[in-house]
Write a protein that binds this DNA or RNA. Sequence first.
DNA 1: GTCTATTTTTAGCCTTAGCTAAATCACAAG
DNA 2: CTTGTGATTTAGCTAAGGCTAAAAATAGAC
Lengths: 226, 226
Amino acid sequence: MGESTAAQPLSSSIGDYVKIIWELAGSGAASTTEIAARLSVAPASLTKMLGRLQELGLVSYERYRGASLTERGRAEALRSVRRHRLIETFLLEHLGYSWQDVHEEAERLEHAVSDNFTERLAEFLGHPARDPHGAPIPGADGVLAAEDSFPLGEVMAGGRVHVTRVHNEEAPVLAYLGERGLVPGRSLEVKEVRELDGVVTVEDEEGVSHSLGGPLARSIFVRLLS
Amino acid sequence: MGESTAAQPLSSSIGDYVKIIWELAGSGAASTTEIAARLSVAPASLTKMLGRLQELGLVSYERYRGASLTERGRAEALRSVRRHRLIETFLLEHLGYSWQDVHEEAERLEHAVSDNFTERLAEFLGHPARDPHGAPIPGADGVLAAEDSFPLGEVMAGGRVHVTRVHNEEAPVLAYLGERGLVPGRSLEVKEVRELDGVVTVEDEEGVSHSLGGPLARSIFVRLLS
DNA sequence: GTCTATTTTTAGCCTTAGCTAAATCACAAG
DNA sequence: CTTGTGATTTAGCTAAGGCTAAAAATAGAC
Ligand SMILES: [Mn+2]
Ligand SMILES: [Mn+2]
Ligand SMILES: [Mn+2]
Ligand SMILES: [Mn+2]
């Protein structure tokens, strides 16, 4: 009944392609140029790789029509994401990495660790539910908790919120937010959401207020406090 | 004065070639077939790779004459060995790996971690001097402690010794020794060293005696107790 | 509906790191 | 010295992953 042979681990290139397609496509399809830009690779390289990924049964792809993950592709993506997020958690909590540096190191390590390592690390870390950026960590069974928070820009002025996640990987952005304590776990009061330019002004627990441009406000996810 | 450009990290293949040449050549030169066998690679692949390693300034190599490391090659080898041994220590002490399983995982991870990771890990581990097999861990400055122990087979009968190192990477061998407690840190009394076949008989602290064949006895390194 | 701008693909090339088979060298035995 | 054998190298091939330049398809603007 087995349909494949020994399930040789995917190369790190393939792992990254699948992961990016998962991030980009969600349940739909991702475009060639979009994926290429995220991976800093020429669009032509994408076309070739999408063919290979299809042969491997990881994506379903039709010329000029974009790519989406197969069930198996989605499973592989979630395994990569689990490894990545557990590693980031370890780097921050035990090796003293700063918030903005964990991603780059995890991006390499995620391709080198075995499933055995991953599960032992999860155990060592106490099976965390979220990574340092507040992103949910998929379970070993491939289940990813549904996101129940929403971008800061969608809150009405006056609302009190709890930061759950910062959905951004750029180190300078993370450094900026980290310095100001705008990190998961923080409580904020939304003072103003300006229609005009999307700038959001919030006040933190110490009464300090912060202005955040539209894109930045969209990358900070929050939950309303009762 | 700088002679090289950005010092892009070496590929994992190159890292392994350099490390094996270091292990095999010591201060002399290693032969093509010897290196090839250790890396499970065809001899022809070696010849090609030795050319590349020479161009990279890592080995000095003359056709039909074997290869030896340059000063830079030796430095790279020691950096790899440091990473490898620190990772093994982490796997055993914190992730609950068994003695015989750490090597394989470290063999992959050693190519994925940055210098920053390595030094933070060393700090986390408390700057251990030896890995789980008792091998000395090179310093961040590239200094490797001189080995002051010697193989069990060279001890005279009646001598009391302290096991410092097990110089063997085969998992079944390590499992066998581990089960019997013949690991670094143990004290033993040498009962007999048989000229005939090199078999060494030792007695451990609990009075249990163990017979070890020549090759095995040669891979257990000890120091004489006062 | 047609046309143009933007995507996307194709074609052809490159490097790394392997392989096999065939040629060549070194060395030890005679 | 000559020669045979084992070690080593050369030649030629392969696959993965990239790239650039040119061709083709799609989609949006008119
Ligand atoms: Mn990340
Ligand atoms: Mn990655
Ligand atoms: Mn090892
Ligand atoms: Mn290795």
